[in-house]
Design a protein around this nucleic acid. Structure first.
Length: 161
DNA sequence: GCCAACGTTGGC
DNA sequence: GCCAACGTTGGC
């Protein structure tokens, strides 16, 4: 399986690209959606890269890149009764929820704003642009990944609608 | 703060 | 298995 690409959402007040830059790597815990879990379990491989997306931010958009550095494993926060993300349905025998590990790759000099994604040809199919889309882990095509990182580096070719 | 969209829960 | 109620997400 070749390297795949993803988009991972986070609220920067909870965990931001600056936090990842400081930490170098982090466990992506607290995902409590079956579709997102299945992407971690069945899709994500060590070495896959992800667009790091800030939601509920000003502006919202892609702020950098992270790389998968640890494959899916039971999410420890689901098993910890003291944790905010504790889920009593999750047990050691049957963990239900999973986490992967991400390492910092880069922080963009400028946010690639949601508004920019919306108006950039070639990105029309991105799930994050769909109204009401709440999935916190989304697959992204190689082409979409390339366009977004290109925008971040100031490549505006084909950008104007 | 509002509210549309969506996933989950639980009564039946 | 249906579906109304509810809680959450996330753009605005």
């Amino acid at each position: 399986m070749p390297q795949q690409h993803w988009l991972i959402k986070t609220e920067p007040t909870s965990y931001s690209i600056d936090d990842l830059k400081r930490d170098k790597r982090t466990a992506w815990t607290g995902v409590r959606n079956y579709q997102a879990r299945n992407f971690m379990r069945d899709g994500m491989k060590v070495g896959d890269t992800a667009l790091f997306y800030h939601s509920s931010a000003e502006p919202t958009g892609v702020v950098g890149v992270a790389r998968v550095c640890g494959a899916a494993r039971p999410d420890p926060t689901a098993l910890d009764p003291k944790d905010d993300h504790h889920d009593p349905k999750s047990t050691k025998q049957d963990p239900i929820w999973l986490a992967v590990d991400f390492e910092f790759v880069e922080k963009f000099a400028k946010v690639v704003a949601l508004e920019t994604l919306r108006t950039t040809p070639g990105l029309e199919g991105m799930q994050v642009l769909r109204r009401g889309q709440r999935l916190s882990i989304q697959p992204v095509t190689e082409e979409e990944f390339r366009i977004v990182t290109g925008l971040a580096r100031g490549n505006t070719r084909g950008k104007v609608r």
